[in-house]
Simulated assay, not measured.
Amino acid sequence: MKEELHIAVANGQRVTVKLHDDEIITGVAEVSTDPKHAKIQSSEGPTWVPYEDIEHVSMIGNPVH
Results as ranks from 00 to 15, higher is better:
G61Y: 04
E3T: 13
V28P: 08
I24F: 05
G12Q: 11
G45P: 04
E23T: 09
G12V: 04
E30I: 12
P63C: 03
H37W: 00
V57M: 05
D34F: 04
E30N: 15
I60C: 01
K36S: 03
V17D: 01
D34I: 08
K39Q: 14
E52R: 05
G27D: 12
E55A: 10
A8E: 08
Q13K: 14
V28C: 13
E52H: 04
P35I: 14
I40R: 02
S58M: 02
E30H: 14
D22Q: 09
I60G: 00
L5A: 12
V17E: 00
H37F: 00
N11P: 00
D22N: 10
V28F: 12
R14V: 05
V64W: 11
A29I: 14
E30D: 14
I7K: 14
G27W: 07
H37N: 09
E4W: 04
E44T: 12
E55R: 12
V31C: 08
H6T: 15
H20N: 09
H6C: 04
V15C: 15
D21N: 15
H20F: 12
T33Q: 08
P46K: 09
H56Q: 09
P63D: 03
D22G: 01
G45R: 08
V15F: 09
A10R: 08
I54K: 04
L5C: 11
G61V: 11
Y51R: 02
M59K: 12
I25P: 01
T33F: 13
S42P: 09
E3M: 07
E3Q: 14
I54Y: 04
W48T: 02
V9G: 03
P50F: 00
H65F: 03
H37K: 06
G12D: 01
S43Y: 02
H56S: 08
D21P: 01
I7C: 01
E52N: 03
K39M: 09
V28Y: 10
S58H: 05
K2C: 01
P35G: 03
V15Q: 11
Q13F: 02
S43P: 02
T16F: 00
M59Q: 10
G45T: 13
H20G: 01
L5G: 06
K18Y: 04
M1A: 01
L5P: 02
V57K: 13
E30P: 01
E3K: 13
S42H: 10
A38Q: 11
T16S: 15
E52T: 06
T26P: 03
